[in-house]
Design a protein around this nucleic acid. Sequence first.
DNA 1: TTGAAAGCGCTAACAA
DNA 2: TTGTTAGCGCTTTCAA
Lengths: 321, 321
Amino acid sequence: MSTALVSIVMRQAPGASAATRQRVITAAEELGYRPDNRARLLRSSRSRLLGVVFGVEHAFHGDLVSGLYAAADDAGYELALSATTPGRDERRAVGTLLQDRCEALILLGPQTPTGYLAELAQRQPVVVLARAVRHSSIDVVRTADADGLRQAVDHLVSLGHRRIAHIDGGRAPGAAERRRGYRTALRRHGLDAEARIVPGGLTEEDGAAAARRLLGRQPPTAVTVFNDRAALGVLDILRGSGLSIPADISVVGYDDSRIAGLSNVNLTTVAQDTDQITALAVARAIDRIDGTNPTPRELIVPPHLVIRGTSGRAPDIEPVS
Amino acid sequence: MSTALVSIVMRQAPGASAATRQRVITAAEELGYRPDNRARLLRSSRSRLLGVVFGVEHAFHGDLVSGLYAAADDAGYELALSATTPGRDERRAVGTLLQDRCEALILLGPQTPTGYLAELAQRQPVVVLARAVRHSSIDVVRTADADGLRQAVDHLVSLGHRRIAHIDGGRAPGAAERRRGYRTALRRHGLDAEARIVPGGLTEEDGAAAARRLLGRQPPTAVTVFNDRAALGVLDILRGSGLSIPADISVVGYDDSRIAGLSNVNLTTVAQDTDQITALAVARAIDRIDGTNPTPRELIVPPHLVIRGTSGRAPDIEPVS
DNA sequence: TTGAAAGCGCTAACAA
DNA sequence: TTGTTAGCGCTTTCAA
């Protein structure tokens, strides 16, 4: 039994009889043999490895990693994960990936300056997710955040709402574009005069604080919120003050996080299409590796509205004049 | 310039003159040369790799991974990360690590049956974190959850509270032990009669629902909650119903999650000592690898109370008789 | 269908 | 201090 033959069987490559195949497999099982990935990668010039840098504290990155695993799997690639933590910066994380001879780098919401990313991109394809980076050598895949808010506003307007407020995300990534999307959408419906943006943030408490402010005078009949977490805070305050949702006021979140789908939250929200983002990211990386489509570009994925129980017809507070 | 010499320089091993060292380093920089990890690992019989399996959806695992990186770094080991996702089970995650020839496996809150873990443990050391597994060949490092609740109750009693309720975590991991810790602590203070356990859960909404129930009749002056997320829901409901915290009612959470520390939440909570858990896990793994301390065991790390703004003196509702 | 032999990029032992 | 040589466990080519 030659090693070459075993190799053929273990790789499920053609060129071995069914009998030998069986023999090898049972023997391997008995011995607890597993091919050594290091040696395999070393020998084959390709590593078929996609390096992924993600932030351990970002829940959303978890969703992206999930999608990346699936997409890479379908394409016959493996993922090498490297996390950034409070004590481990992006350069370190990238460094280990480089040593592992990843054929492309997929960076989730990188914080490093564009210059460094560009430098990296000279050695192997770099695909950036969830951050807008403008550089001629870097691929970007991100959500059309402005469009997400347009969809939310359109939905609310179609339900008869006119006084629609927006609780924003301050300086969080994506907040500016979502704010812009909200403004543009209102304008398109001729509701400029009704636009009301309340400073918010990313957390439940930020949302709660903004909601309290909102209730002060002439509350809106609907509110779009920067993200689901903040929307949760908003819901608690509104309900706590005796309002019924969505009869009295509608609320739309952003992210379609796990929490939004829970039956007792049941939040209407804008879903980032993580499946598509990750599929595109992997496809893009592989295209670049293969040289199929060598010019880097920015791919913008439209989000979609998930309509659940916190949005409904506008109350008849002010009859249409 | 021989390859061996370059190897010596790149590994920072002794046996090269300062001049050559400099020469090699500059040349490497110019060429963008990086040693190939695969080849290095292949050649040296050791991989110095610790395999870590974590769940992409568990925020707490993020904290543990952070700590593991730091601990491994100090010990001169590297981490190989492999995530479980909704579409990628533990066996898959473990499989890739095995192929990478990790010298030990560190599993965060594994769900697989003990039998499978035991099987794994025959090939290399297995250290389980954040789950109680009882098996003679597996190391376990976990928090003394019962003690955490004892500390919380002791703290509240020392502030004069007597009517202390507990909102539990149902069947979540750790919930049973926390419940037990609560009961035992009350008993020790002679407060058995005051014990009141309200069914809760892991989420904000679970906490909120439990809090509403709590307010029904004769509310307690303090409440311990299964985790911080649920505690957040509790806080919102209590505040929403006009109670002032901690003047009217004290709240203690569990986990010391990022959110607990935010200035506008400022939650008193029980902190799992992730630094120590991860340090012990890495130390244990290395001990087993080296054969220094070959008998597997269970290490139980005491949590500690982080006193913030949601706990205070008991209100003078009932003067001490 | 199977086996023999070369070599991936590195490290370790030894020789110069 | 430097260079030479062998070989880690696999894949690949080519010959049997």
